[in-house]
């Protein structure tokens, strides 16, 4: 627990890596009427954390463990496995765009040769895992950082998409903290296994919605 401040730095929504342009799928869910109130928002965020969130956190933890051991030989396999768990081409692109941005930001903020070894367009969870390792954090920290960043980012977009009381939104985030801790623990344990055995819960409607969102003429958020 010696590196708590570094974890806060990495998980902070103000880290300049462009995350603010994304709603984590909330915008298409609101547009389609699937999320209409605070109860719906809470269910959406929980569902997302338990599916996309668990996958992202497991891959972040796995990348962190490998980077910390200075062994990047699995990174290509991790990328392929993450692609396989992301059926929507649009979401694969978003993950790689956010990954490039995070790598660009971290390369300036805290330069390290590992960032350059990540290839052309690394996935966000993998960059997060490597960034965590470079900052001296462990796999569970990497998992928690991406769970928190993705969850709070989607929640923050609610203020622009729905009629909300921001206190209510943060109350949901507060209720979810125990869940995120548990998911991060689960991710860290899974990260010790082979890339092919990492968790793969799916949320097909999110994949379909992401494809519809890309084709909309007017949208507030890129995804």
């Amino acid at each position: 627990m010696e590196r708590q401040a570094a974890l806060l730095l990495l998980a902070d929504g103000r880290l300049p890596a462009g995350g603010y342009a994304h709603s984590g799928g909330l915008e298409p869910a609101v547009t389609a009427g699937r999320v209409a109130d605070m109860a719906g928002l809470e269910k959406f965020l929980i569902g997302r954390a338990e599916t996309a969130g668990l996958i992202a956190s497991a891959f972040a933890a796995a990348a962190c463990a490998r980077a910390a051991a200075d062994d990047l030989s699995d990174l290509e396999t991790l990328a392929v496995e993450l692609d396989a768990r992301t059926p929507s081409p649009e979401l694969r692109k978003v993950s790689r765009d956010l990954g490039r941005q995070l790598r660009r930001a971290m390369s300036s903020i805290h330069p390290h040769p590992l960032f350059a070894a990540l290839g052309d367009a690394p996935h966000q969870p993998i960059v997060m895992g490597v960034a965590a390792a470079v900052l001296g954090l462990g796999p569970r920290d990497a998992a928690l950082a991406i769970l928190h960043e993705n969850n709070s980012g989607a929640a923050a977009s609610a203020a622009k998409l729905m009629r909300v009381d921001p206190f209510d939104v943060h109350a949901i985030l507060a209720r979810m903290t125990t869940r995120l801790d548990a998911l991060a623990g689960q991710a860290a344990v899974a990260a010790e296994g082979a890339p092919g055995d990492l968790p793969s819960p799916g949320a097909p409607l999110s994949d379909i919605a992401a494809e519809h969102h890309r084709r909309r003429d007017v949208r507030l958020f890129a995804s």
Partner: peptide
């Protein structure tokens, strides 16, 4: 934000 606080997307 995109031109001031967090320019990463534009910079890239």
């Amino acid at each position: 934000t995109a031109i001031r606080d967090d320019v990463t997307m534009n910079l890239m």
